[in-house]
Design a protein around this nucleic acid. Structure first.
Lengths: 149, 149
DNA sequence: ATGAGTGCAAAGGCTTTGCATTAGG
DNA sequence: CCTAATGCAAAGCCTTTGCACTCAT
């Protein structure tokens, strides 16, 4: 899904632009976080990012807040109590998650375009009827991952 | 969605059965929590439940854990940091949520049966292909509620 | 009587904040 | 130079736990 190599200039430019638009710099630490999130095909928890990067806790928290506000990073919901983070869908493309209800592991997946389209149409109608200004949807598959079955 | 009156015997019986199956009693406090969650058509946060019930914090937390384990209550994820709780879908029926990305408010909605069915079929295929044992799905509409637009 | 449930207060753990220092423009 | 960013440590806040008491069986 978002398996870029570590010198993806297009991605970096996009991120830098988003940060600048938010009045923020693309600092070394922020680049480090982005690289860590690019590394796998799944969202990472804060302990995982800390282990992978050796950033100061406070810097990680502060930068995740900035990156989230700038639309670079998204917080992912699981079944356990751990917040997990991934690059925003605007950078990596729309996708969904397989969430293991036992171990909390999360994996990225995409669903067929036609289903996605039908869903979008239905949700748009629904939102309009409810007086809700729809921005996007979240669709997660909850169950047991192969290791937990 | 789950706007039962406060003496819905069928619901109480169902809940009592689920609790008994989990080796738990249907105590006064648990009934109080269930009543609070029945009250509205939206999930409630812990502060909201506390305000509505005047339970001891520790009792609320402990009982929510029990009720969740017994399949009576479900934890709902929003965009803000607040955990919210509602009666389980097995009691109230399958539904989805309108989540306001600004104020965090959550409202229940249902989508048309045919869309839901198509979605189920697609997700089942997807899960199988990924070696994932699908239990259920979560679909949330994220955007701005009428008050925040 | 006996184990579950309750409430208060203390402990725990993740997250945020204060402040002095460092780095980037 | 000057402001944003960083790192360490302290403070905060939600959640969990310990313990004695109460309730229901």
């Amino acid at each position: 899904m978002h398996n870029h190599n570590h010198h993806n200039d297009a991605l970096y430019k996009d991120i830098a632009a988003r940060l600048m638009a938010a009045g923020q710099r693309f600092t070394t630490n922020r680049r480090t976080i982005v690289d860590a999130l690019c590394g796998g095909d799944r969202p990472l928890s804060i302990p995982e990012i800390l282990k992978a990067t050796s950033l100061a806790q406070s810097s990680l928290y502060r930068n995740l807040t900035v990156l989230e506000a700038a639309g670079v990073v998204t917080r992912v919901i699981t079944t356990d109590e751990w917040g997990r983070f991934e690059l925003s869908e605007e950078l990596t493309g729309h996708h969904h998650h397989l969430v293991c209800s036992q171990c909390g592991a999360v994996t990225d997946v995409t669903i067929p375009d036609d289903v996605e389209t039908d869903l979008d149409v239905a949700l748009a109608k629904l939102a309009t009827r409810a007086g809700f200004e729809l921005s996007h949807h979240r669709l997660d598959l909850v169950g047991l991952c192969s290791s937990c079955q």
